[in-house]
Each structure stands twice: as structure tokens, then as C-alpha cells.
Amino acid sequence: MSGDTLVLDLVLAGLLVFLAWRLLTLSDLFKATVLFIVFGVLLSLAWVRLNAPDVALAEAAIGAGVTGALVLDALRRLDARGPADEAQPLRLNLPRLVGALLVMGLGAFLLWSVLSLPPGWRGLSSETAAAMPRSGVVNPVTASLLNFRGYDTLLEIAVLMLAVLGVWTLNAEPMPPAEPAGPILDVLVKALLPPMVVVAGYLLWAGGHAPGGAFQGAAVLAAGGILLHLARPFNVANRGVVRLVIGFGFAVFLLVGLTLATLGGRFLELPERHAGILILMIETAAMISIALTFVVLFVGNARDNAGRDTS
């Protein structure tokens, strides 16, 4: 932290702490939601300052954007239930005090252990650098996610898929009907959708050599879907096509891994010569699936008739 950046970093860090505190103590859920979204944007700036632009992208797209929309949607559903009990402002009592002290102690210890890392601690960066030429991509984050530790990512995609299944098990109440979209909203949707698709594709492609990739691209694509849904609600029930697209990314990833294993390599061992194109293929499939996953999470499983308990 040099003199150049000191002011900025202090303002940013101060704001983040302030926001976190207000978020937890506000009794108005609506304001808390707004602050949550603001927090996401600022957190993404913090990741930029920490030289982690990939995480910054993901935080801006998923943490602030898609999650923000999800929370807003949840808030509307709470609103529709009639005057909800306003959340009680957080008061300090003995268990909370003990909890807070424990967490603060843990935080202090974490801070201490970060500060006591040996100077110039590099983790696995030299190993990563040595393996980069064989990874098929230039961006080390993408190389880690899709090649060195692609197996982790495969299972992460499974988690996203499971989230959709989880939403489908719940019979959410249908959303109360919204006002029909006005002309301005239509214009906005029509004007924003094409650039969203382009940017998603660009992020996917850029992932090979710069920050970006399937998750970030998918979030932007999903934002397009959510925008469309907000203007003109549609239903993505568990129909065949929807299920196919949801499972597509995981299936492609898994089948690539298995094919490589049967061809004499190990599971998910991408041959050096084709690693780049295989990664792009896997990421494209994953992006499409993850984008639809986010849209399904937003649209939910509202049935046509009132949600019936099917236990």
C-alpha cells in the first residue's frame, strides 16, 4: 500500500466495514437489500485492489447482480404476504456478545497469521508458472479451474445443478402479477439484450488469456434472461428441453473426462495439444447451463395453480 493508493484503499475498506455493520443492524429489510447490493459492487472493487480481477468479475456479476436480483425477488414475495414482521434490530445480549468476541478473536488471529506469512510467500505460483505452457490457456486462473483442478470445477457445476433440483422440489407460491411492461422498459430490454449476449460471449473467449470465463459469462447471460423475465414473465418449468440444457454442461465435462480416460489417459487429463479447444468446449457448454441455472433460480418453480403441498 503506497502513498498513491492509501486514500482510496482506506475509503474502500472503511466503507466496506461500515456497510457490513449497517447491513446487519438495519431493521428495514428493503434498505438492507440495497446495501447488500452496494456491498457487492464495493467488494468487487476491493478484489480489484487485491489484484484478483477474476474474482472481481465474479463478485460483480454474481455477488451483486444475480444475487441482488434474487434477494429483491424474495423480498417481494415477503411483501406479498402482507405486512411482514419487520426484522428486529439486532440487540446485543450475552450469547451474541460471546459469539461476537469469538468471531473477533478469530478475525484477529486470521489477520495475525496473514501478517506472519513469510515475506514473498508465493503459494503454488512457481509450480503453476512451470505448468502453464502445457495447460492450453494463458490465464492461470482458467488453467487452474479447467485444467489443473478441473475435477473440482466439475463437482462445483454439479452443485449448481443440484441447486436447480432443490428449487424444483419446492412448490413456491406464484408471484403476484406485475404491471404490464411499459414502452420504455421494452426499449431497455431490446437494447440491452444483444450487448449482454455479446459481452457474455466475449468474457467466455477472453477467459483463455484474461479475466473471464464460463461463470462470469454465464452470469451476464443470466442477467439478460432475468431482465427479460422481469419485463415479460415466462416459465421455465422442468420440461425436457430445460432439463437437457441444465444438465448439458456437467454432462459434456464429465464425458470429456471419461473419454480421455478410456483413450488411455487419466480421468480429465487434457492432452496438451488439444487442451485449449477442449477447455473452450467445456466452458461453452458450462456457460449455457450455468446461465439457465441462474435464470431458473430466479424464476423459481411457480406452478400455474396455487402451490400445493405434495408430500
Binding site: 480481477p53 447482480g65 440491452l192 439478460g224 431482465l227 422481469l230 419485463a231
Partner: peptide, 26 residues
């Protein structure tokens, strides 16, 4: 870092979506 412009682009698009979500939902 030129690629931070990409992050900005994403923020613009997502902020637009969130703004619409605000108005339409709340």
C-alpha cells in the same frame, strides 16, 4: 490493467438489470 474495463462493462449491464428488478419487484 486494461482488462478492468471488462469488469466495468459487466457492472454496467448487471446494474441495469438490478435497477429493473428494483422497479419491477419493489
Amino acid at each position: 490493467r486494461a482488462h478492468l474495463v471488462d469488469v466495468a462493462l459487466v457492472v454496467v449491464l448487471l446494474a441495469a438489470m438490478v435497477s429493473v428488478a428494483f422497479v419491477r419487484r419493489l
